[in-house]
Amino acid sequence: MNILASLQPQLCDKFETQAFDLKRDDLAQVIVEKKIWRAVMDYLKEEAGFVTLLTITCTDWIEEERFELNYIFAHETKRCDLMLSFSIARDGESVQTLTDRWPQAEVMERDLHEMFGIVFEGHPNLASFALENWHHTPPLRREFDTLAFVNEHFEFRKGREENVDVKAEAKRLRALKKAKAQAEAEAKKEKGADDADE
């Protein structure tokens, strides 16, 4: 019996899930409201056997003004994974930490705090993770334009003298080819006309 398929009715009975999306035999996604995610997670951990926290991801849906947080759990038999998703507002909404349940959540939450600016309540140490002395917008937010940042802080070495703009060159070559084909076609036409004359 498939673990995920049998989980679906139990979970949907017990909680108000917004969706239970069975993606593959070994992967399903549960979307819930933010207010019940802790309860669902407890149920998953204690009773459904999803004991391992694999990772926490965050997706920035800037058009819909929300962050989607995905907590990915693995079953204790390691035969299937489950994604628990919920949305929070892009600014100012904090999430409760998971460091009390899983020690590895500490570094994952630090990563998300640094990259998206999400605050995790009760986290022991939201210090910087990969960046050092970073005072700009958190870099993985959609509004952070990395190219603009690069242009502001660095300059690029000039290319070689004979360096050409690839797009312009492609355009030129295409035009050249077209002209050549046209000339050939005309020549053929004239020749054909000549042949016909003869």
Binding site: T59, D60, W61, V107
Partner: peptide
């Protein structure tokens, strides 16, 4: 791609 997250084994091994 809207978002891609890499979860390597080393993240947990190196910290926790």
């Amino acid at each position: 791609i809207r978002r891609m997250q890499v979860r390597g084994p080393s993240l947990i091994h190196a910290y926790a």
